[in-house]
Amino acid sequence: MKFEKKNLMESGLIVPAVLLLLWWAGSNAGWWNAFLLPSPEKVVDSFVLSIQNGELQKHVWASLDRIIKGFGLSAAMALSLALVCSWFPPLLVQLEPTLEFFRHIPPMSVIPMLILWFGIGEAPKIILIILATFFPVFMNALQGIRDCDPKLVEVATVFGYKKWHQFRYVILPSAIPSILTGLRLGLGYSWRSLVAAELVAASSGLGYMILDAEQLSRSDVVLMGILVIGALGAFLDYGFLWAIRRYLKRGIEA
């Protein structure tokens, strides 16, 4: 008994349970206007309905598809640029002021220009994801490579490692944790920026679904969309963390 109690105390489930209970009780007691905050039952109903007619799956897939393309492209570019820059420092010196400038532009502020240039197709959303995720991935990878203990590189030098081998067997492995941290941050950013992009200009995706529901005054669907976005984001992050742990464990054994 005591053990179960302890599990509950450590589970972090108390806060969501209390919030859910308050939401449910308040809705049923009529503490607020049901249009401003629909009841949990109504939100669940719209969730089930949306799955039944396939709308939700369609939008989720549209969003995920953009994440896969945008984040995949962004991560590939950021990682290769970080590798090239650490291999060839003069390039970084040349790029740094420009990158520093772009880093401080909130991706959302670029949306009008992106729509102007690329319309409301897939391109502006993918570019937006790249803008939002490039820097955390790039910066963390670069930092990880820079932070490699020079004493370990010396060990490799003593044992006759050529420069490329030092990079491959010492510097890169030591940077892996920070590269993965960057990827994880980037994945979170990509999700957030994507939904924002879909809110502005899209004909599919979860952001669009919310916007569409707003215009039809369906606050229950809006709320359902928000919850699905939150849950999917958390799920993606959790999945990534799980993959990292698995990889690191295997890396240690191999």
Partner: peptide, 9 residues
């Protein structure tokens, strides 16, 4: 070396 300098991974 003075420190072991083993590769931690």
């Amino acid at each position: 070396f003075q420190e072991p300098r083993l590769l931690p991974w």
